[in-house]
Amino acid sequence: MTTIGINTLVYMSELNDGTPQSAILPVIAAHGVTLAEVRREYITEDGEFDAIAAAAKKHGLDLFYSVPESITIDGAAHPNFTGFLDEAKRMGVKNVKFNQGDVKDVDASVIAGLDAEAAAHGVTLTIENDQTPQNGTFACTEASLAHIAEVGGRIGYTFDLGNWFWRGENADEAFAKLREKITVFHLKNVNGAASREELSTTMLEDGVIDWRAMLPQLDPEVPVFLEFPIEADHVGEQVATLRSAVA
Rank of each mutant, 00 (worst) to 15 (best):
T2E: 07
G5K: 01
N7K: 00
L9C: 14
S13G: 03
S13H: 03
E14K: 05
E14G: 06
N16V: 14
T19N: 08
L25V: 11
P26E: 15
P26C: 12
P26G: 08
P26Q: 13
P26S: 11
P26L: 12
I28T: 07
H31A: 10
E37S: 10
R39G: 10
R40A: 08
Y42Q: 09
D50C: 15
A51L: 12
A53R: 06
A54T: 14
H59A: 05
D62I: 03
L63R: 03
L63Q: 10
F64L: 03
I73C: 05
D74M: 07
G75V: 01
P79T: 14
N80M: 09
T82F: 12
G83N: 02
R90N: 06
R90C: 09
G92N: 08
V96T: 02
F98V: 02
F98Y: 02
Q100A: 04
G101W: 00
D102R: 09
D102Q: 14
D102F: 04
D105L: 07
V106K: 00
V106H: 00
A108G: 13
A108E: 15
S109I: 13
V110D: 05
V110A: 05
L114C: 05
L114I: 10
D115Y: 04
A116V: 09
E117L: 05
E117Y: 01
E117W: 00
A118M: 15
A119H: 11
N129H: 15
P133S: 14
Q134F: 15
N135D: 13
G136R: 00
T137N: 07
F138V: 08
S144C: 14
L145M: 04
L145Y: 04
I148N: 06
R154K: 15
D160Q: 09
D160R: 06
G162L: 11
G162V: 04
N163H: 09
W164S: 04
A171K: 04
E173Y: 02
A174F: 04
L178A: 04
V184Y: 01
F185K: 02
F185Q: 08
L187T: 00
K188V: 00
A194W: 05
R196G: 05
L199E: 08
L199P: 11
T201D: 10
L204N: 05
L204T: 12
E205G: 12
D206Y: 00
V208W: 15
R212W: 09
M214T: 09
L215S: 11
P216S: 13
P216K: 13
Q217F: 09
L218N: 06
L218H: 07
E227S: 04
F228S: 08
I230K: 05
I230M: 07
E231P: 05
D233P: 13
V235Y: 01
T241C: 06
T241Q: 10
L242T: 01
L242G: 01
L242I: 02
R243M: 10
S244Y: 14
V246G: 00
A247C: 11
